[in-house]
Amino acid sequence: MTVAAAQPRTTPDDLTDETVSAYRRDGFVHLPGVISRTDAARYAAAASAARETIGDHHDGAIFTQLLQLWRHDETLRELTLNPDLAAIATRLAGVPLRLWHDQLLIKEPRNGAATEFHQDQPYWPHTGSRHALSAWVALVDVPVDRGCMTFIPGSQRLNGLRAQDLSDHGDMFAVAPELQWEQRVTVPLRAGDCTIHNSHLAHCATPNFTDDPRIAHVVIYVDADLRLAAEPAHPVTDPLGLTTGETLPDDHFPRFTA
């Protein structure tokens, strides 16, 4: 009789100094089992239900993007506000954090479209931010052929770039041609695993070549003390009537305590 190996888990208590150092050097880290496979399946079911009631923000072939799940769905709110995940992110960032927003990123079966290399930060109207990072939690198994992510280690050191076109294979390299020659690391994930990446890190995802959807829940953490910039426009802040130069309001962007 063969006994299945227990799934590795990652908690704030067993996050090592070596892992923190690797994140700060490379701009990303793979964390196995930040949630259990049982919870991943529960959240995946909630994600599938949410897509029937929440409009697709991206509305394109690359992926389905559902925003602000924590304000619409009690089950997914648990994951977005998960204190262990927030504690891990805070340790990696080294500064107090608040929620920017969450999102479901779903690649349809055999969608045929890659998410091309890009940075996240240029899409956000932030100023004075010391650090921002995204926790990309796999709610289903994400092998290489289902749309897992590839990172360019160390590319988080590039800042001040314009936003890149997620549908254009060459756009990231048009603004940062030196990245064409850098090492790339592809990270397949089991359901419940997570990658956390710096907001300036160049990353991409392959098309989904399988017959099942790729479902990822992303929690974006930002410097709790950043201030709102005048641009770019953003669907999370634009409807709120906020004042440029002010800190984000806690009721829409809750702080996480260490």
Rank of each mutant, 00 (worst) to 15 (best):
A138D: 00
L166E: 04
R184C: 11
Y123S: 14
Q119V: 03
D84W: 10
I106R: 03
Q156P: 00
H169M: 10
F173T: 12
R91H: 05
E74D: 14
T115L: 15
G128Q: 12
W124H: 10
R184L: 09
V185D: 12
C148N: 05
R162K: 07
P177N: 14
L92E: 00
G154L: 06
E74W: 00
T80I: 10
R77Y: 07
A93E: 03
P177D: 14
E178D: 13
R146Q: 08
G128K: 14
D165N: 12
W136A: 13
W100S: 07
T150I: 03
L166C: 04
E108W: 06
A113S: 13
H131Y: 15
V142E: 01
T90C: 08
H126A: 09
V137S: 02
P177G: 13
Q103S: 11
H118R: 07
R184F: 06
L133W: 02
L133A: 14
D141C: 06
N111Q: 06
A113T: 01
S167W: 01
Q164C: 09
E78C: 11
A138E: 02
D141V: 09
D120N: 10
T127R: 15
P83K: 08
L99P: 00
I106M: 04
M172P: 01
M172D: 01
E108C: 08
D165Y: 03
E108R: 13
M149A: 12
L105R: 01
L166N: 02
L92G: 01
R157P: 01
L179H: 12
G154H: 03
D171Y: 09
L85V: 15
L158G: 02
L166I: 06
L97P: 00
H118D: 09
I88F: 12
L92F: 05
D171Q: 09
F117K: 08
L179T: 11
L104Q: 01
M172K: 02
P96D: 01
Q164E: 08
R184W: 08
A135C: 12
G154Q: 05
R162D: 09
L139H: 04
L92M: 05
G128N: 11
T115G: 13
L97I: 03
G154V: 09
P96A: 01
H101E: 08
P143K: 14
I152Y: 03
D145R: 11
R130Q: 14
T80Y: 11
V175P: 00
P125L: 07
W100R: 06
M172C: 14
Q180I: 05
A138C: 05
H118A: 10
G128R: 14
A174I: 08
D84C: 11
D120A: 12
D102S: 07
